[in-house]
C-alpha cells in the first residue's frame, strides 16, 4: 500500500462510507418512524399502503433495488440520480422498511394501560404519541436499531458496485494497482470493523441516556446480542 493510494482513495473512501451511512441512516430513520407510526393508524387504507411498502422493500434484495434505481429509473421514468443519492435512496428505503417494523413492535410493546391512561386524561392522539407512547417506546428501539445500523454500514459496501468511491471501491482500485490482495482486503475489513465498533459504542451511549429516563440500564457486552432476548430480536420476518 503506497501513501498515494491512502491519500487519494482510501481516506476519502472512508469519508464517503461515513457520509453514506449517516445520510442513509437519517433517511431510514425518517421512513421508519413515519411508516411505523402510520401502521398503527385507525384508517385501513393507510395501514394497507404502508404494509405493502414494508413487504415489498423487505421482500426484495437491497442490491437488486439499487440496480433497479440505477438502470431502470432513468429509462422508465427519465429520472437520473447522482449515484451517491441513488445509493442513499436505495439503502434508506430498504433499511427504513426494516426499521419501521422495529418502531411498530416497540409501539405495540408499550403497556396498554399507558395508552388508556392518556385517553382518560383526554390527551389528543398526537399528544398521546409524543408525550406518553414514544418516550417509553424509543429506548426499547435502540438496541435493535443498533443491529440495523451495523447492517446498514455493511450494506453501504454495495454502492462500490455502482462506482461510488467508498472504501470497498478504493480496495478494488488498490488491488488493481498493487496486486496485494491479502494486505488490502485485511486492512479494509479492519476499517469496517472499527467503524462498526465505534457505531456500537455511540448507540450504547444513546441507549444509556434514553434508558436512564426510565430507570433501566443497557445490557452488558461489547456487541449487541442478536436474538438473545425477545426485546433485542428483530420482529418476526425481520430477517436481519
Amino acid at each position: 500500500m503506497t501513501t498515494g493510494l491512502w491519500q487519494h482513495w482510501l481516506l476519502p473512501g472512508i469519508w464517503v462510507t461515513i457520509q453514506l451511512t449517516v445520510y442513509s441512516a437519517a433517511f431510514a430513520a425518517v421512513v421508519a418512524f413515519g411508516v411505523g407510526i402510520a401502521r398503527t393508524s385507525p384508517l385501513w387504507i393507510v395501514r394497507f399502503v404502508t404494509g405493502v411498502y414494508v413487504e415489498v422493500f423487505r421482500g426484495t434484495s437491497a442490491l437488486v433495488l439499487m440496480f433497479w434505481l440505477f438502470f431502470v429509473m432513468p429509462l422508465a421514468f427519465g429520472l437520473q440520480l447522482v449515484p451517491m443519492w441513488a445509493a442513499v435512496l436505495a439503502l434508506g428505503l430498504s433499511y427504513g422498511a426494516y426499521g419501521s417494523e422495529i418502531v411498530r413492535g416497540a409501539l405495540a410493546a408499550v403497556a396498554p394501560a399507558q395508552r388508556e391512561a392518556a385517553v382518560a386524561l383526554s390527551f389528543t392522539p398526537a399528544q398521546r404519541m409524543r408525550r406518553v407512547i414514544l418516550p417509553q417506546a424509543v429506548p426499547e428501539m435502540i438496541p435493535p436499531f443498533n443491529n440495523l445500523l451495523i447492517e446498514l454500514l455493511k450494506g453501504t459496501a454495495l454502492v462500490s458496485v455502482m462506482s461510488v468511491a467508498d472504501i470497498a471501491f478504493a480496495a478494488q482500485l488498490s488491488r488493481l494497482a498493487t496486486g496485494a490482495s491479502l494486505e488490502i482486503y485485511a486492512i479494509i475489513l479492519a476499517i469496517y470493523f472499527v467503524l462498526a465498533f465505534v457505531l456500537t459504542r455511540l448507540m450504547r451511549l444513546l441507549e444509556r441516556k434514553a434508558k436512564a429516563g426510565l430507570g433501566q440500564a443497557p445490557e452488558k457486552g461489547v456487541f449487541p446480542r442478536r436474538g438473545a432476548r425477545p426485546g433485542t430480536a428483530l420482529p418476526a420476518g425481520g430477517e436481519r
Partner: peptide, 10 residues
Amino acid sequence: NTPLLVQLFF
C-alpha cells in the same frame, strides 16, 4: 461486523 461483499472479494 464486516460487509459480505468485502469478504467475498477477500
